[in-house]
Design a protein around this nucleic acid. Structure first.
Ligand SMILES: [Mn+2]
Ligand SMILES: [Mn+2]
Ligand SMILES: [Mn+2]
Ligand SMILES: [Mn+2]
Lengths: 221, 221
DNA sequence: TGTAATTTTTAAGCGAACTTAAAAATTTTT
DNA sequence: AAAAATTTTTAAGTTCGCTTAAAAATTACA
């Protein structure tokens, strides 16, 4: 098995991530949007990935990962999240800057490097955004979280996970001083504009938009 | 200035390194050999780099770096050597494995990453092979060393620098337990096969080939 | 100095990864 | 169920970074 290009690896990674909500099947346009490429380019590449037995591609229907495609995708995710952890914990980058750098580092080819990095970091289970880091064998501990947009009123939650691919969103969280593991309680929901009122650690009270809430994932306590 | 591809960066890096002995001018075939590409490919790329004002290319004569080409080349060298230092010092890689991984890492684009890494490592002046690490401004401290192949008999030297691009050579140094800063004295040179006899730290005595000696750089003490 | 050997460039072409425009298939709306 | 809208594929073309083969320039040497 010859090594894949960075763009091929990205396709596999995004097919994994976009497929999580749609039982594995991903549409051409969704990939095109994510990759910022034309739909024609995506069709082109999907055929080539299918030739390499990394995906199952059915015309006009969609694409999903094969066993070997999944294995590679999970490995890229593992590398991405280990690198993010390194950048934040060791190099003291803020969490809004690490994603774009990890997008490059995740494509460095060296199994020994990944494992040494994992050990250097003390085998972390989650990255700085709360995303689970797959272990050496590809096992991921999937924590059961719910989007804050779907959470119930008056219940106590803790912030477990935030969407990491918008630096602007993460900077906003810095500004309102919302961090992982903070306690969150919804005290009111506004019908009119779908904003929600929350308290953080039973102290600060603030209003956040539906859009922000969708990118925050919480666990009940 | 749009960012360069990894292969363009490699061209600049190799033009810098190959040019060091020939007052900056590098021949097409030397690059072809180093890159393991055909001479035709090299001619092709040199024209494109010249269009971008990164090199001065004169047909049938050779190529050299412009001011901006040099700046980029030195930066790649800085990144390469910082990454090698990180891999050896922090991740405990042996010195024969770090070069190939750094060949990939040197192309990651992030100025903040380089500087944070530099700080994390304590602003090292030399990499694990004794190569000088250019500082943030591109300044390199050039230590005056001489190849052991050209060193004088009976004089005391210390090993300052070893050629890092052959893993086999570095493994050989591991085997004979020769390390940076070891004291070396030439006690005999054999005319017939050009091997030389040395003592290490005034204790171990051993015979090394001309080829090995050419890749060892020493400083007199 | 003329010829041979070597080096370098030019020419033509290829695969990967993109594009836009047009055609075809699918889905939605009426 | 037909028409309209949307999605996806196909077709044709581009750039980058490579190749081989042939031509041209340079260098070596008899
Ligand atoms: Mn990320
Ligand atoms: Mn993350
Ligand atoms: Mn190196
Ligand atoms: Mn080195």
């Amino acid at each position: 098995m010859t090594t894949l290009s960075a763009i091929e690896e990205n396709y596999l990674k995004y097919i994994l991530q976009l497929g999580e909500m749609q039982n594995g099947n991903v549409k051409t346009n969704d990939l095109a949007y994510k990759l910022e490429h034309s739909a024609a380019s995506v069709t082109d590449m999907l055929k080539r990935l299918a030739d390499k037995n990394l995906v199952v591609y059915k015309k006009y229907y969609g694409v999903s990962l094969t066993k070997s495609g999944l294995k590679i995708a999970v490995k890229i995710l593992r590398k991405h999240r280990l690198w993010e952890t390194f950048l934040a914990k060791k190099l003291k980058f803020t969490w809004d800057k690490i994603h774009v750098i990890a997008e490059q580092l995740e494509h460095v080819q060296s199994d020994e490097l990944i494992d040494k990095m994992d050990e250097f970091l003390g085998f972390p289970k989650f990255d700085p955004h709360g995303d689970p880091i797959p272990d050496k064998h590809g096992n991921i501990s999937l924590p059961n979280v719910v989007s804050l947009a779907d959470a119930k009123m008056k219940k106590q939650y803790t912030l477990q996970n935030v969407n990491d691919d918008s630096a602007a969103f993460l900077k906003y969280l810095n500004k309102i001083q919302l961090q992982l593991n903070d306690k969150i309680k919804i005290i009111d929901k506004e019908e009119f504009d779908e904003t929600i009122q929350i308290t953080i650690n039973d102290k600060k009270q603030l209003t956040i938009s539906k859009d922000a809430a969708k990118n925050l994932f919480v666990k009940s306590i």
